[in-house]
Each structure stands twice: as C-alpha cells, then as structure tokens.
Amino acid sequence: MQKITYLEKPVYFESYSATGGFEEGRGPLGKNFDFIDNSDLFGMKTCEKAEAEMARINLNIALKKKNLSPSDLNVLVAGDLQNQCVASSGGLFTFGIPFLGLYGACSTCTEGLLVLSAMLSTSKTYTRGASVTSSHNSAAERQFRTPLEYGGQRAPSAQWTATASGAFILGKEKSHIKITAFMPGKAIDGYTKDQSNMGAAMALGAFDSINSFFKENNPDEFDLIMTGDLGHVGSNILEDMLREKITRYGTKLASLHNDCGLLLYDFDTQDVHSGASGCGCSASVLASFILPKIERGELRKILFLSTGALMSTSSVSQGDNILGIAPAIQIEYEE
C-alpha cells in the first residue's frame, strides 16, 4: 500500500544548477539559468550528443558552485527521455561517480530526488549524491514525433519539450533547503491515447498522488503544490478535479497548485500551445525558480510532483492508453 515516508533526518540541497537552450533562455526564467546555449547544440554535432553534453555541463556547474569534486559524491542518479536513457549515461560517465539510470518519463526529476533522498537518509556511509535530469526538444521530436524539418501542425493541446537540464546535489550537510518527506506515485490509466494531449493523460496521476498525500497532511501548512508539466489543459483538469472530488480541502488544494510547464515559457511571445514538457522542464524550473525562492525563505513548505506520461511509440500504436504518474517530495525551508 502507498505510504508517505517522513524523514527523521532531512536531506539537504547542497547545490543545484539549471541549463537550457535558446527558447528556455528567452523565456521568463531564462535569466535565472546558470548556463544557456542559444544554438541548442552545446558544441556538439547532433542533438542527442548535445543533450548528454548539457547534462555534463550542468552537473559540473553544480559541483563548482560548492567547490566539490566528483569524488565527493557517493552516487549519481540520472535519467532523460532518450532510448535507454543514453544521454544521462553517455554524458555523465566521465565523472566516474557510481551511476543509477532512471526512467520515469517526465517525472524523472522527482523520481531521482526521491530515490536519492531514500538512499542518503538510510545509508550511514553515503554522505552526498547527485540527481541529474535532462530533455532536449530536438531529440524528443526525432524519437517520439517527426523529423525536425517535417512540416506539420501541432494541436492546441500539444506541449513543447524543453531543452533543459536540472542538476541537484543532495547531502547531509545543512543548507536552507531540505527534503523532509517523499511518496512514490502510482501509475494511473490516463484514459487517452492522444500523444498531443499529454497534460490530460497525466492529470489523473497527479490527482491521485495529491489526493493520497493530503489524506494525512494539512494543506494550510503548504505554500505551493507544484506539478511538473501538465500545461494548461492538464492543470485545468487537475484543479477542476481537486475542487470537485475532495470536499474538505479541494478548493484550497486547487488554489495552491501551479505547474512548471506554465512557467518556463512566455505564452504571449512563445508559441508553445499548452505549455512546456519533458524531464528538463520540472528539473530546470525547480533549479532556476523554486529552490532559489525556498532558499530566500519566500516559500516555506511545498509539495513537488513531477508528472510523467508512461508510454512508447509502439505502445501507443498498439492501442494502449498513456499512463500518468506523479511521485511527490516535500521540500521545506530550513532556518
């Protein structure tokens, strides 16, 4: 049965960094990113290699910020959207840190932080680890949709895969940001096969996790419930369901909700339809926007749930529904 783990000894964010491409750089959070490459290629020849390089650069920045070297880390958990998560392994193996590859589609950011918190809080020998997540618009288009130069129209509900990466170094050394609880999500049938409406496919997964979490938590203690990449469509569905289905706290929960997919781009000048998506979306928004706010004490306690759409091009063409999942972590300000 699904349970929430409350950490007796919290795990701290010791360092974090966000990198991105051109569209992310000119978006509203662009100035908060640690590194932007306007060519989207990060000096590489192909977009797949570019994503790997972006992840490498990003972890390097996170290490540099705290004057850490790779040997200070006991474990690295990382994931992305490419087949077999090859951007993470290919980009990060040179650090020589013990590596665990993760796949949770766009929920990978929270999944990674959750797994790492669990390891650090239970292991006596581990003191510090990193979680890195990335996605690349071009690599995702090529893998899941059509060739880059293919002339097609995107549906209004479609989302824009972010070219972005978030790197987080968690450890036992005190900082202003800590993870105090976590809860893995259940994979929930999204009742749709529509690949251009991922927000709708994931909203039920997010609802399920939020509903479970607040059965034993009081939303009045929270400043924010942040989902990963539901976009406009998914966010509207989720907030509607929270108001309708949860009689006690529903309206409060809906008013606390925001979505990383709504923050990464400017809807007036960037034609991204329903919003941003991809593993890099929630990861980079967390690193560039939310964690700094917590660090400054502007947010005291939040629930962070990256949302993932579990599917493959074959599963969809074989008629399977897309599944939604939303693992959750509770992040708090530490005096």
Binding site: E23, S138, L148
Partner: peptide, 15 residues
C-alpha cells in the same frame, strides 16, 4: 532527398 541530406542539416525547432 538524398542530395539534400548530403548538403543540409536539421535545425532546432523554434516556437
């Protein structure tokens, strides 16, 4: 198509 593949490269999509 083949000739184009020899000459050109795919570019990143822009919004």
């Amino acid at each position: 198509g083949y000739l184009a593949a020899l000459i050109f490269k795919s570019k990143s999509k822009r919004t």
